[in-house]
């Protein structure tokens, strides 16, 4: 479990704290989504979870290991993988296999074990055919898969995904999201997905809305999607289908339940097939 208790963080030269007094628990094998407008503190939160940033106040601990103790940082980073938004700024090797091997090499594993992990991780993300390929010639989605494999090769217990889809097209997003869910089911890895898109966040078990460095709301996807105008206030665009239902209900005499998520049920309500 990752536990944050009373965590605040201010960047050096920052005028206001980026994170203010956040307390939160993330269970092993949980899938949570963190949402909020640009600059709300989401990415700062992500970097606090794996000890890349250390809290100014409060404490972050991963499975009981506090990030305040320097000797815990290595085990924490082994447990908590962090996937960044832009694959281009995290790929550092000239060959796919070197890229994936980088983490295990840092853990000081035996060459045979590294080889084993590289092969397994690339298979998990279906990129085993690209082992000798230069990463920078791959497509955005493929690059992000390689980054993902690099984290999986370290056999993490938690994956923090910081807007991993922002450079991808809709198909790339869908594929990658499917992959994340598969990792969770097969490897029991907990997922923390940071995203702007409520559509993507709906896949999680809990959604946390961060605003102004603080937790604004924690709820299930069903709770969050029916927040209506409140969502817009925290910079989150409602689901397209919610917008549509809202627009329908604006017409006098129409009352469609706000919690419908799939089109077929909506169409059935509008026009019950006889």
């Amino acid at each position: 479990m990752i536990r944050l208790s009373g965590v605040s963080y201010t960047y050096p030269h920052g005028e206001r704290p980026a994170i203010k007094n956040i307390s939160l628990g993330i269970n092993g094998n949980e899938f949570i989504a963190i949402m909020g407008r640009n600059g709300s503190g989401k990415s700062t939160l992500a970097r606090l979870l794996n000890g890349l940033l250390l809290p100014g106040q409060g404490d972050v601990s991963v499975d009981g290991l506090s990030s305040s103790r320097p000797e815990n940082l290595l085990p924490i980073r082994k447990k908590v993988g962090l996937l960044f938004p832009d694959p281009d700024s995290q790929l550092l090797a000239n060959l796919v296999e070197e890229e994936v091997a980088f983490g295990p090499e840092n853990l000081g594993l035996e060459p045979a074990e590294i080889r084993n992990r590289v092969d397994t991780a690339l298979k998990m993300v279906s990129m085993e055919d690209y082992i000798k390929y230069p990463p920078y010639l791959l497509s955005g989605g493929q690059k992000q898969r390689i980054c993902m494999a690099s984290l999986l090769a370290m056999q993490p217990d938690y994956l923090i995904l910081d807007e991993p889809f922002s450079m991808l097209d809709p198909r790339g997003r869908k594929d990658l999201l499917t992959l994340f869910k598969k990792m969770r089911e097969q490897q029991g890895i907990a997922l923390v997905l940071i995203t702007h898109s409520l559509e993507e966040a709906m896949q999680a078990e809990r959604i946390i809305i961060v605003d102004n460095g603080q937790i604004h709301t924690i709820g299930t996807p069903a709770d969050i999607m029916t927040m209506g105008a409140q969502l817009t206030q925290v910079g989150i665009e409602p689901l397209e289908i919610s917008n549509f239902i809202g627009e329908l209900n604006r017409n006098p005499g129409v009352k469609i339940p706000a919690d419908i998520t799939d089109i077929e049920s909506l169409v059935d309500i509008l026009c019950p097939s006889s």
Partner: peptide, 27 residues
């Protein structure tokens, strides 16, 4: 500079701590 900063964070996030204790895939 931004890229350099991002990259150093990404390396640190993958447990990079310099050459000490580091092994290699291909010997």
């Amino acid at each position: 500079l931004q890229r350099a900063e991002d990259l150093s964070q990404a390396m640190e996030a993958r447990a990079y701590q310099g050459g000490e204790g580091r092994t290699r895939l291909n010997i």
